[in-house]
């Protein structure tokens, strides 16, 4: 009882106590320094590292996504380019084939025309030669006929008639 009364007299709710302030300061500073060394340093370093790790993971993921998107775009580009290339090659091939066909046909036609022309000219030549041969043959026959006639019937009037009729005959035959 007595102690509590004495304490109540000594102490007041707002009375300053420099000793307690001193102890508070000393205790707090020591705790602060020790905790800074053993706890806050490692904890905050770990938290910051984790934050950085998470951030870099997110960054990496974004980067990978960007990269894959770029690759996909590139692939699509390549694919469409290849399609265009194939189209072009087919078109060119078709064009070439068309041209080649036209060339060959043209050449063949020309060739055939030439051949026909050559055949015609050679036929003409043969005809001329045959006619020449025939003329010579006819002249020889005429000479031979005349020789025979002259040898057998030497009659002036008759001879004249015969020669005339023979010439007549020859001319009609020839035409």
């Amino acid at each position: 009882m007595l102690t509590s009364g004495v304490i109540l007299l000594q102490a007041n709710l707002l009375s300053p106590n420099p000793g307690l302030i001193f102890w508070t300061a000393v205790t707090f500073v020591i705790v602060l320094l020790i905790l800074k060394k053993i706890a806050w340093g490692p904890i905050i370093t770990a938290l910051e590292e984790r934050e950085k790790g998470i951030q870099s993971s997110i960054d990496r993921a974004h980067q990978a996504k960007d990269e894959s998107e770029a690759i996909l775009r590139k692939n699509n580009e390549l694919l469409s380019k290849a399609d265009a290339e194939a189209d072009k090659i087919i078109r060119e091939g078709k064009e070439y084939a068309e041209k080649l066909r036209a060339d060959i046909t043209g050449k063949a036609q020309e060739e055939s025309k030439k051949m026909i022309a050559a055949a015609l000219s050679s036929i003409e030549q043969e005809k001329h030669r045959a006619l020449d041969v025939l003329r010579n043959e006819v002249a020889d026959l005429a000479v031979m006929g005349a020789e025979k006639i002259i040898k057998t019937v030497l009659d002036a009037d008759m001879q004249k008639k015969i020669v005339n009729s023979m010439i007549q005959d020859l001319s009609t035959k020839r035409n």
Partner: peptide, 29 residues
């Protein structure tokens, strides 16, 4: 007067608990 009082003892107790908890936690980190 820097005698040890009840509140000083409580503060030391608090400090001791803090040091124990955070030495464990700090070690884990």
């Amino acid at each position: 007067d820097i005698s040890i009082t009840k509140h000083v003892v409580m503060m030391w107790l608090v400090s001791a608990i803090l040091l124990i908890i955070f030495s464990v936690v700090g070690g884990k980190y």
